[in-house]
Design a protein around this nucleic acid. Structure first.
Lengths: 243, 243
DNA sequence: TTGGTATAGTGGCTGAGCCACTGGGCCTTT
DNA sequence: AAAGGCCCAGTGGCTCAGCCACTATACCAA
């Protein structure tokens, strides 16, 4: 069965969390200041303290606030303590404000991270990982006219390489960055209409990895993703503005 | 006032969250399976459902579980959906099991990420950022015999460069990675006893950035951090084993 | 086979309440 | 005055009991 992206039901808690998050990121509550007391916030948003608290737990996990017993919830400086998992929340709000440069920053980071782990993958890949990547390429050539499938397979291919680097930290970093642009996922599918171009590049990268030619693998990856990023930004209409 | 690392009071919720997290990561609950119902879990751990729920919210934010109304909390595959913010929790448990390779993986990722944003920083840094970095180097040379201070300043220096890349995604990635090794922070201070070596390297990097020589900045950064990583692993006794 | 419906199991959310911690003001003692 | 102890208002931590909303399943009817 084809797995469609499920309708995302937003719970009350998610809603409150998102509102608070926006307010914090918009500077309504400034770093160093305390949020209003939970009792007041819960009344203001019309929810119980319990529900509000669930939202605060989430914000604390993200590194947006620090809650201290007997004191309150202090707003932190995002640049100082915000974690990478924030990226997935920042993307939609950047979209709302037509902030294309933010998306280009995500892509840039993605490209850099990918280039790094591909370099490592070239040195450490096992035969099994090579064949996994290879079979993805075979699948790609079969579905080369379906942009949607091309996009999916390319993504899976990158994930295989991330694992092939045999570095758990890189896998998690890749996940965070991936979650950040997953929001845009459907919006630049047209980039993958040129399936041959994708296949050609991925194959070249895989060849370099097979030969354990790390520098070349890195170079090819960087080249491919940079061009890819450029096309994506073009499609989304951020083409020129973006640095 | 000198800011000491505060005593970390662990709340009940943190405790439950940590326990569940360990159990999940240890494979007690397998990906795809559902966690026991909240009512049962809360009874098992001897806390109210509310408190347990707070912990589950945290785990969901981390990408360890997915909770669905009317169904339950499904355990996710960490490699598939775990975010970078997990790193900071993985470090202590890896320490417990003497898993040195995990720490070396974090350092490796850190080095790669730093090298990438330094490359960008060389192209985009403003004069202001240059002078910020410069004054940190001045401070460094004044406190060059205090390993603790050298470590702190080096860290601040890196953060300045991260911002100089003018890419918000990189800042957040750096924060996540930084949080991951902050756990070890005090344990390898001796590496920074050689303050001259640190200063010399940072200065060279800054010079390359000043000249907008991106490739060289990248190369120097990579060289410095790789050697640094090696020393850190040595100090922690993971020297040889680590890949 | 199809489609509805009852139902058991699960999370979502509420509201009231008590306990624990923090910080600052006040009062005593020196 | 200065220092130390105490109290208390404000705030988060956590509990308890309960009802509502959603989901999957099994069964029944067309």
């Amino acid at each position: 069965m084809l797995r469609e992206s499920p309708i995302r039901r937003t719970s009350l808690v998610d809603e409150i969390g998102a509102r608070l998050q926006e307010d914090i990121l918009a500077g309504k509550y400034r770093p160093g200041e305390a949020l209003p007391p939970e009792r007041e916030l819960s009344e203001r948003y019309g929810v119980t303290r319990t529900s509000l608290k669930h939202a605060l737990v989430r914000l604390e996990e993200l590194g947006l606030i620090e809650t201290r017993h007997g004191v309150g919830s202090i707003v932190l400086d995002v640049e100082q303590s915000g974690g990478a998992d924030l990226l997935k929340y920042l993307a939609p709000s950047a979209e709302g404000s037509r902030d294309g440069s933010f998306f280009s920053e995500i892509l840039e980071a993605k490209t850099a991270v990918c280039a790094s782990f591909v370099e490592l993958a070239a040195e450490r890949r096992t035969e099994k990982e090579l064949s996994q990547a290879e079979s993805l390429l075979v699948e790609l050539s079969e579905k080369i006219d379906d942009a949607r499938e091309v996009q999916r397979i390319e993504h899976a291919f990158v994930k295989v390489l991330a694992r092939a680097a045999h570095n758990r930290a890189f896998v998690l970093l890749t996940n965070s960055v991936g979650a950040a642009y997953s929001f845009y996922w459907g919006k630049y599918q047209s980039v993958f209409e040129d399936g041959e171009w994708v296949e050609e590049n991925l194959r070249a990268i895989l060849e370099a990895i097979r030969k354990k030619d790390a520098p070349r693998a890195r170079e090819l990856t960087q080249k491919y993703f940079r061009e890819n990023d450029r096309r994506v930004l073009d499609v989304l209409g951020y083409g020129r503005k973006a640095k």
